[in-house]
Design a protein around this nucleic acid. Structure first.
Lengths: 134, 134
DNA sequence: TTTTGTGCAAAACCTTTGCAAGCTA
DNA sequence: TAGCTTGCAAAGGTTTTGCACAAAA
């Protein structure tokens, strides 16, 4: 665990990072806090928030803003992936798409920005929710 | 102003919608509240929140979750556009891109979703911020 | 031993809600 | 007039912060 460049490696940080890496993704602060308490009952919610901010600054996790609610955090994987959210049941599906790279280049060229990240959110209704609504 | 299908047209709602339509977009609730108070000093923040929720339900505005902060609201225009945010100065640039349509179709076909909306967020550093950092 | 991180409690925010009074249709 | 909408104040939920103690380097 060299990942915390310069920052101290504490029991709490190791535990939280571990939970983020091994979870299926999309944890919010409170869910992470509850999971962490199972293994480390004295951990505090402030520590969870402070660690998440640190991890984000170090580029280890990403902070997502899904449709309606609060923030979700997800450990950064190798491939950039995007999110499709069902407005009916809230299910989140991840996908990749080759065109995002092209889009990034185009936007970068047109705007003069140095683009460091791109996120695509799509929303709609999944098959079962659509059946329920029809 | 037929836009409020069935809902009552009040001074407050007319004012808020007007501000949203004529602003350069990306107002948050508090900014909108301050603008509205200049013209209607007795308006309350609750009314702003209630109206924003209503407008959103009617499809008149969109709620955006930019990089770090709280929600921003933007009147829905004719063309779907996306956002590029400068991590240095916070500037928000809007852009359109033809490939999003293709992407929507692909994702819809692969997932079986009926996709009703797509949003692309990119972040990076604009030219002047990049110069400052170099 | 020095510096950084933690837990706790309190504060700061943003957003929603209950209720009596006001306004729209 | 009947019912929806408002303003106010209070509550709710999430996130941040101050401080004394604990842990890491």
């Amino acid at each position: 665990m060299q990942e915390l460049k310069g920052q101290r490696i504490t029991t709490q940080r190791r535990l939280l990072l571990d939970l983020l890496l091994h979870s299926e993704g999309h944890l919010d602060a409170d869910e992470l806090y509850r999971l962490a308490k199972e293994r480390e009952p004295r951990i505090s919610l402030s520590t969870v928030y402070r660690s998440l901010r640190l991890f984000k600054e170090l580029g280890l996790v990403e902070k997502r803003h899904f449709a309606e609610e609060h923030h979700h955090y997800e450990a950064k994987g190798d491939v950039e992936h995007h999110h499709l959210i069902c407005l009916g049941c809230g299910k989140v599906i991840e996908f990749e798409h080759p065109l995002t790279a092209t889009m990034k280049e185009d936007v970068s060229r047109q705007s003069g920005f140095d683009i460091v990240g791109a996120a695509v959110y799509m929303e709609g209704y999944c098959e079962s929710c659509r059946r329920g609504r029809a």
